[in-house]
Structure formats: C-alpha cells, structure tokens
Amino acid sequence: MNVYLKNLLRFCIIIALQVLILNNITLHWFTEPAGALFVPFIYPLFILVMPFETPVWALLFSGFAAGITVDIFMTTAGIHACATVLMAYLRTNVLNALMPRNLSEYINQQPSIKNMGWMPFLVYSGFLILLHHIVYFMIESWSFSGFGSLLLKIGASFATSMIFIIVYILLFTRQTVSRA
C-alpha cells in the first residue's frame, strides 16, 4: 500500500480510537483523599510510528493536525496541538541519538519493536510521551498550586498511555508467519 495512504488511514484509526473510545474511559489513581483523574492518550503514537526518513516539516504539520483534531473534540483549544508539535520537533533528534546508522538509510521502515528492538523503542517512545504529557498537563493546570497532584497526574497518565501504546504496537504489527 502507498505510504501516504497508509499513514492517512492510521491517522483516522488512531484519532477515532482516541476520541470515541479512550476519551470515555476516565481512570483514577488514589482519588481518596486526593489524586489524579485522567484519560489515557494514544494519539501521539501517530507521530511515533511515522517512517524513519520523514522530513521534520512534515512531522511538524502532521503533529499540528493530529493535535488540533483532538483539541476540537475535547474543547481544549490548542493545548494538545502545542504538546504534539514539540514532540514532533524533537522526534528526529531522539531517533538520531538512538539508531546506529543515519536515518536516511532506513528506507521504507518505521520505528517499531521489530525494527529497533525492545529497549531502544521503549526509551524512544517513553521519552517523547513523557515530554508530551508534562507539557500538556502543565499548560492545562497553568499553575504550580497543586504540584503534587500535577506530578501524580503526569505519572499516572504516562504509565497508562505507555501500556496502551505497547498494546497497540503488539496488536497492529505484522507478524512474520513461519511456515514449517
């Protein structure tokens, strides 16, 4: 399948998954006496799994598009877009630091557990998702008044998002069928 068509389709699927299903799952950690209430975010995954050789400007535009779409559905006006654009900008640098060869040498490949190995992929996605969550929750609360609660919210949301992302990756990666 054409790589553009494939990414467009993935965009639609991930946004639909986020908006229609995950936004209705409100999770909570330690809500008595005080705690965090959040929904898991899976849509940053769309930026994470774009092909290796995607230029930075394309990443920025697609990050902005994904963020603004989620913003429209969640009435958060630009907060998701802001966090996702930052994440998209730093993606190339993180990948360059983690991969052994130059990124332009990986033709028709995308970051995944199969192509990168477990540890590099977890470091790569964990770093970017954590960055996204920190920026998102900081801008949303816009103060340091409930700092403990803010940290708890970031931590809990990060852990849950990572679980959902790993599950998505394991479910939707094509397995090589062994024919014995």
Binding site: L60, F64, G78, A81, C82
Partner: peptide, 9 residues
C-alpha cells in the same frame, strides 16, 4: 506552529 497554539490557548 507553537505561536499559533498559544494564541488559540
């Protein structure tokens, strides 16, 4: 892009 986001916010 970040400036656009902050204007929206």
């Amino acid at each position: 892009l970040e400036i656009i986001c902050f204007i929206l916010i």
